[in-house]
Amino acid sequence: MFEALEKINQRPEPFQFYTASDLWTDDHTSKQMLSFHLNAAIDVSSRNAAFIDRSVNWIADRFNVDAGIDIVDFGCGPGLYAQRLARRGANVTGIDFSIRSIEYAQNAAARERFNIRYLNQNYLEFATERRFDLVLMIMCDFCALSPMQRKGLLNKFHEILNPGGQVLLDVYSLSAFEKRKETATVEANQLDGFWSPDRYYGFVNTFKYEREKVVLDKYTIVEAQRTRTIYNWLQYFAPEALEREFLDAGFFVEGFYSDVAGTPYDPQSEEFATVARKEEN
């Protein structure tokens, strides 16, 4: 028992483990995540519906979204952005890890008779001959990736964009990083049964890595028949650090905002968004 507790409370190296598939492809947890996506009043898996409407209105104006524009949404979930953009005439491709979210999105698109192309796969492995005018990556997904994964993804964005194509993504700020604290808790059926339909104990260890500006929420789920660990990594950014990653991938940053709805940039905001453009040859 002591050794098990020692392992639960052990601090790994930053981004040492990658367990995204355990969260998004598990039958039970993917069902919980989809229910959060579809709750229009909360900001959990997706933003609330009112914010998404405001965000799509701004995206449509900022990027001149109209018939014929080609957009790809990395981490599209159940298609909340994709459908709204398709309604404006955009050709949309959505990519997501969760088959449950993709199936919901496909059914919703069929009901609306939208020709949206949805792909169920890890977007880190996405490859295509198609070229796009705009890449979206919303809900701070970029922060969950290691430096090497981010580098590979930005290179992928550069490859699949048309000359002059743009990227819109959001990240957590250093202001948010400063508010995070190291904690260790245990609770029966932690998060109201989110992790399993059966009884379990959920251990949550939050580790801060000051030099790297990274936070890990490490979830250890102990059930009667198994124990599993989910690593939720979050990279926090200064605007200069995010811009440097884009510059290294062949982009130039056009501007920063406090969110993906175009709110003017505030250094105290806990999140911020950036628009970057692929340099034209």
Rank of each mutant, 00 (worst) to 15 (best):
N155Y: 09
E210C: 02
R228M: 02
S55F: 06
V135Q: 08
P197G: 03
A105H: 11
F256D: 12
M137C: 07
R131W: 12
V204H: 14
V222R: 15
A90H: 05
L234D: 15
R226V: 01
R180Q: 14
F15I: 06
E13K: 08
L5D: 11
A50Y: 15
D96I: 03
V222T: 08
F272N: 12
H37V: 00
Y265A: 11
E271L: 01
A90Q: 07
M33T: 11
W195L: 01
E280W: 06
F114V: 08
V204N: 15
K31F: 13
N115C: 12
E245N: 06
E223K: 05
W233N: 06
A67F: 13
A273P: 15
A50N: 10
E280P: 08
A249D: 11
C76P: 04
P239T: 09
E210H: 07
S196N: 08
N232I: 14
F237Q: 12
A67S: 11
A127N: 10
Q235M: 01
P197M: 04
A261G: 10
D66E: 14
L191R: 14
D133Y: 00
E125G: 08
L161R: 02
G77F: 05
L136K: 03
M148F: 11
W24F: 09
F157H: 02
Q32L: 03
I138V: 03
A50G: 04
V171W: 12
K208C: 04
F132E: 05
I102S: 10
L161K: 01
L124D: 12
S175C: 08
W24G: 14
I52E: 12
A127F: 07
Y81G: 02
D170P: 04
Q16H: 12
T206R: 01
Y219R: 01
S21L: 09
T19V: 10
I8N: 13
E271C: 01
P267D: 14
V171G: 10
A20K: 02
H158A: 07
L242H: 15
T183G: 10
M1S: 13
Y209H: 01
Q235A: 00
V253A: 12
R130H: 10
F157L: 02
N122M: 02
I99C: 15
R113M: 13
S146K: 02
R226Q: 07
K181I: 01
F63M: 02
I42D: 15
D43T: 02
N48I: 00
N122E: 07
P239L: 00
V215E: 12
W58Y: 02
Q235R: 04
D133Q: 03
E159T: 07
D96C: 08
R84A: 04
A40N: 10
Y18C: 14
F51D: 04
E279G: 14
T183P: 07
S55Q: 04
K31P: 13
R180T: 04
L168D: 09
E210T: 00
N64P: 12
G75A: 07
Y81K: 04
S35M: 02
V186G: 13
R111E: 15
F194K: 09
A50D: 13
D22H: 09
S196W: 10
V186A: 13
Y209P: 04
I116V: 09
E280M: 06
V171Q: 12
T19K: 01
F36G: 13
D66G: 09
I230R: 03
V167R: 09
T185K: 08
F203M: 05
D70S: 11
L119F: 14
K151E: 15
Q268T: 12
T19I: 08
N48S: 00
Y18Q: 15
P239D: 08
Q121W: 06
